[in-house]
Computed example of a mutant assay.
Amino acid sequence: MKLVAGNANRPLAEAIAAYLQLPLTKCVVRRFADMEVFVEIQENVRGEDVFVIQSTSFPANDNLMELLILIDALRRASAHRITAVIPYFGYARQDRKPGPRTPISAKLVANMITRAGADRVLTVDLHAGQIQGFFDIPTDNLFASPVMVRDIVEQFDISKVTVVSPDVGGVVRARGLAKRINAPLAIVDKRRDRPGESEVMNIIGDVEGRTCILFDDIVDSGGTLCNAAEALMERGATEVSAYITHGVLSGGAVARIGASALKQLVITDSIQATEAVRVSRTMRVITIAPLLGEAVARTAREESVSSLFD
């Protein structure tokens, strides 16, 4: 088995390698003067089971091209099997046509990864489960919830916790977490009665006197989380924290969350944390390296990956 890492999230790749007690394969991933990606695998991989670790996070297009070119280089170097380990699968939010003449970019990216030469894909908390079906190769969608459950049990009195979905679309995900920790579920329903009017936040469920944990897969601008936290506090919640798998945190999201009603935001290291995240007093990063490392090991041994979540 060989582990190859791109530049998107080197610390996570190194942590996975440490868990597996394997060195990362020597390779060069750099840019030409015009920013074209150049890749050179500096070890023999002929006949090897190779895992390419690369999130397609910001800058999404650059990191996606790195992944595709790494896969192509390994295929041309006669690797026996190539598994794309994509902790954060970018373009996942474009999983359907929200209007006429719009793309389904998640399917396009799935096609690109397949045609580049990947034999299978490992990813974490896809934005929508149906994206697995966009791939014509085996695709394992891992869940970060077991890692988060351990942290929640250590940090909170579970008898006082209510799990909250920040929108109706995330109810299934939040319900799964609530079931794991045997906690009640609440839902934030946001709507505009008329165009141009501000959103009205309705809370479905009892949150008065409760410690609320917002649970979702992606935080980008942070607007939904901040508004949901404020609405929960207005309805009598004692405190509000958020557990999110992928901390995209674009624009002024870190400052916005720091000034909000959220007591803390916990994210995983599926996307490499920026300096702003590392110094933030309201943000904390937990690692999914053991989860990914174990999934990689089981895939290499042809063992069950789904049993990780039983």
Rank of each mutant, 00 (worst) to 15 (best):
S280N: 04
A8K: 07
T139W: 00
P103N: 12
A17V: 01
N227G: 15
A18N: 13
R46D: 10
M148Q: 14
S145H: 11
T83F: 03
G209E: 09
V172C: 06
R235M: 01
T268C: 06
N202Y: 02
R76D: 11
T238G: 00
I288C: 04
D216N: 09
I82T: 04
G169V: 08
V109P: 06
I267M: 02
G252V: 00
R101S: 13
V188L: 13
L122R: 12
G6M: 06
M35F: 12
P100R: 14
L225C: 06
G129D: 15
V147E: 14
D125Y: 11
G222M: 01
E230N: 13
R46E: 14
G222D: 05
H246T: 07
I16Y: 06
A174S: 15
M112Y: 11
V188Y: 02
S250P: 04
Q155K: 15
F89T: 09
S105W: 00
M201I: 10
S280F: 00
V305D: 11
R284M: 02
A8E: 07
A118M: 04
P166Q: 13
T25N: 08
G90P: 08
N111A: 09
R298P: 09
E239F: 00
V188A: 15
I286C: 02
A110T: 03
L232T: 00
T299M: 10
E294G: 04
K160Q: 15
T25K: 07
T162W: 00
L68H: 11
M65P: 08
D72C: 05
R281D: 14
V168G: 01
V163C: 06
F156Y: 15
T83L: 07
V109G: 10
E275D: 13
T224F: 01
I41W: 03
T56S: 11
F58R: 13
A297C: 05
R256C: 01
T139Y: 06
I69S: 09
A259D: 14
N227E: 13
Y88E: 12
P87L: 08
A116L: 06
I244F: 05
L22E: 14
D49N: 15
G251V: 01
R194L: 11
G293T: 03
Q130H: 15
T245E: 02
I213W: 04
